[in-house]
Amino acid sequence: MSFYDLFIGPFVEFEFMQRALVGVFALSLGAGPVGAFLMLRRMSLTGDAMAHAILPGAAIGFLVSGLDLFAMTFGGLAAGLLVAVGAGVVARATELKEDASLAAFYLISLALGVLILSMKGSNVDLLHVLFGTVLGLDDPTLILVSAIATLTLVLLAFIWRPLVLECVDPAFLSSVSRAGAPGHIAFLALVVLNLVGGFHALGTLLSVGLMMLPAATARFWVRDLTPLVICATAIAFVSSVIGLLISYHWGAPSGPAIILVVGVAYAVSVIFGPAGGIVSRRWPLRHLEA
């Protein structure tokens, strides 16, 4: 099998592969930077919690109008924002810390989602919501995913400084600006938006994978912020393309294939990454003169 057959052919010959390619490109552009900031803000597991939280909204949308893009998107967005804001309000109004209140909210949300899905629809539908169909992206879905990526990049440019400063030195930020809290809320909204965008392609459970795994992988290769964001985005995209090809050639489900490819990249980075990987720590190069 030639290089062309392996890597180029599938994308030239089949429209569904072209659509998938555009879809994962848009997804990577949004999820890469958002994931990098989630990791730097020590909110890696927040992404996971939010992904679960989206489920009942999508399920109610599904219950009302079947596999309809806008109903499910709107439902997912509403549920995600409700849980994010609800957890934030409980954390600020009571003694409970944000991580605990978020856990409470998303677990309730998840149980509700599974219950609603099992009341109507077959297991196939459940699988669609949980694991997505990146090989079946239609025009409206592609437009939605691209719009989310565009909005993410523009909004991130606006809240970049408060986001960075709130991680590095929150006391300093609060002494020079009030942008901290609005920036945080806007960022949470971006997390929800990108997860909702991702769930059409990868499903609610796996969409967070394209966010967190590339960020965690990139951290083993670069030490500066801007390269980290670029590197995470590139890893997300390249892994998605390889995942799509594996899925095409071997008939594997595309969502898990994509995430597992990033998983392999992560595993390799943990061992060989020059910025704090196992090898570089266990067998460091000879020390310098000064």
């Binding site: 730097l40 960075v164 991680c167 590095v168 030195d169 929150p170 006391a171 300093f172 002494s175 020079v176 670069v222 030490r223 500066d224 912020l225 980290l228």
Partner: peptide, 18 residues
Amino acid sequence: RDIAYLPQGSQVDRSFPI
């Protein structure tokens, strides 16, 4: 903004890549 403040044992997250 006319006041600069250096907190005690500043709470800078030194692990942040900056």
